[in-house]
């Protein structure tokens, strides 16, 4: 086992510091996850905030977790800028993907609701709801 310790001695300091960083990242990720689950449970129990607001928090926290995994665990923050950019810039396509596709799904739903078989044509629908009030 003599040779297994080569290179360890002079790195002793850096060893401590970065192991600490790793565990710090772990605790952050764990805390975020516990917070998310706690939030989900409190919502199930009391329904104390709008669902859309809750979902926005979940998405924001997910992106935060993704940032910590990529930056710390995958060491992307220590790579040079050009490498970071070639990886992150193409991923920006997701911004468009998400907005376009979810909006498409939403309009598809509205069309299916409004144009379902048996439903009156959109022009007549206004009259229909008026009648329902009487």
């Amino acid at each position: 086992m003599e040779h297994t310790h080569t290179g360890v001695v002079h790195d002793e300091h850096g060893h401590d510091a970065s192991t600490k960083g790793i565990w710090k990242t772990f605790w952050i990720l764990l805390a975020i996850t516990i917070f998310e689950v706690g939030l989900a449970f409190s919502y199930l129990e009391w329904h104390w905030m709008p669902r859309l607001f809750l979902n926005s928090i979940f998405v924001a926290l997910t992106i935060l977790k993704a940032f910590f995994i990529v930056a710390e665990f995958m060491h992307l923050r220590n790579e040079i800028r050009n490498l970071i950019m070639t990886i992150l810039i193409p991923l920006m396509l997701f911004v468009w993907f998400i907005i376009a596709f979810l909006a498409d799904g939403d309009s598809w739903k509205n069309m299916r609701k409004d144009l379902a078989p048996g439903k009156p044509a959109p022009a007549a629908m206004h009259v229909n709801t008026e009648e329902a009030h009487h």
């Binding site: 297994t4 290179g7 360890v8 192991t19 790793i22 772990f26 995994i69 665990f73």
Partner: peptide, 19 residues
């Protein structure tokens, strides 16, 4: 997440050449 942490620790030990 835990297995991700042990993976970083393996990578870290690799930098130290600690087989």
């Amino acid at each position: 997440i835990m297995s991700s942490v042990t993976m970083v620790l393996a990578v870290h030990a690799g930098h130290m050449r600690d087989r």
